[in-house]
Design a protein around this nucleic acid. Structure first.
Lengths: 218, 218
DNA sequence: ATTTTTTGAAACAATTATTGAATATTATAT
DNA sequence: ATATAATATTCAATAATTGTTTCAAAAAAT
């Protein structure tokens, strides 16, 4: 297939659809754990809160996984969504910023279970360098670029204060990571081919505040 | 004004608009720090990436803050957005789950600066109880309900593992918090009048994964 | 006083979500 | 075993929402 055509084809699935997939994936995982092996869009609707038709349309973007009169096979759909989300791949990651947030991420087994392996943390604080979170070592940020190149790291995670975020992103890009997971409250400037996903804790809290205020006023 | 009418009026501003406000607020804050006191929608567009007309439309939902031929007064618009987002209020919060993530939030000065004051952390781990993060004490989760009632806490923050999240939410609701900021990867069931804002770290990471995979395939 | 800038509002376009018809499968009843 | 009813997806059409473009009016700059 022509590369550009392919790109267009892939590209036509909108971000709003993509952002719903992880939720489907999560509920399907729950169903699997409960030993349920069959589900209709209507039942999934009750669980997720999306309408049944929206769920069907979302899933149909990627192929006809369901069967008329039967519904969806839980295990199969879970696996398909895992493939779509790229969760069958093992990604190698490093964390820049070994404060509480960086440590929290390094500590969280859930990410490793999903195929995201943190190989090292980096910090400039001498008191932290040399320590270990689980068995992940905290190294000097000065050697980060070499470490990334050497270990062929896919994902750089930024959990530093805002001020150093762009600088760290530059190092990540230079070192050759493919994606950046950014927790700093700033918009990173990176080349087009680098994927950036932001976690905006501030914004999330502000939105909570907005609705709290709204609720009080009514 | 009639309560229901008021509600409808408030309600007609869509969540997609609301979710853009914090970004405007952030950039306006940056501009203030740079001593810039005037900005046009076109300049804001360059900064935020939203179109100028969308910015004007968004802001006009809340009132005509701009002036033809001049643009927007940075300080004034920043203040207005702060009001809209409810940031002039001081919110009292507690954190349920004093692991790395809970500690990270307790440690983050940025939240306190924005008017969110963490009065206590809670955990069931005896090794943590009694410790202090900055000057915030970690207390036994068993006394959480009384603490919340006594101190008239507005926001409950859940940074516990998934398994205990719903239970903690129930305690929060019973104790009378108005909103919950939930970091656990589960959908909480709470009464309608409680505001819940979720931070889905898992989903964010999965979306990064999706785009990484997509990029590799092209 | 004239030109330029810039907002705000309305018209238009695109995207996203819902509905309904057609079709296939399963379960039930005979 | 077969026919029938109920269930549930898929696909196309429609509706609703969201975003962009256009343009008149107002203010600022020259």
């Amino acid at each position: 297939m022509d590369k550009d055509l392919r790109y267009e084809k892939e590209n036509k699935i909108s971000i709003t659809v993509i952002r719903r997939l992880p939720k489907y994936y999560r509920y399907l995982g729950d169903l699997m754990n409960k030993g349920i092996n069959r589900i209709s869009s209507q039942e999934l609707s009750k669980l997720t809160g999306f309408t049944a038709s929206q769920i069907r349309q979302d899933l149909n973007n990627f192929g006809g996984f369901g069967q008329q009169g039967y519904g969806y096979n839980v295990e199969e759909l879970h696996a398909e969504l895992g493939k779509i989300l790229g969760l069958e791949t093992i990604y190698k990651a490093v964390i820049a910023g070994a404060g509480n947030l960086g440590q929290a991420i390094a500590n969280y087994k859930g990410f490793e279970d999903a195929g995201f392996k943190v190989l090292s943390l980096f910090d400039k604080n001498p008191k932290l360098i040399g320590l270990r979170i689980r068995d992940i070592e905290i190294r000097d940020v000065d050697i980060m670029i070499d470490f990334i190149k050497e270990h062929d790291i896919d994902i750089g995670i930024i959990t530093s204060p805002r001020e150093s975020a762009q600088e760290l992103a530059d190092v990540f890009v230079k070192a050759g990571v493919k994606g950046i997971w950014n927790f700093a409250p700033t918009d990173l400037e990176v080349p087009e081919h680098i994927v950036v996903e932001n976690v905006r804790l501030n914004e999330s809290l502000f939105i909570l505040s907005y609705f709290l205020k709204e609720r009080m006023e009514i």
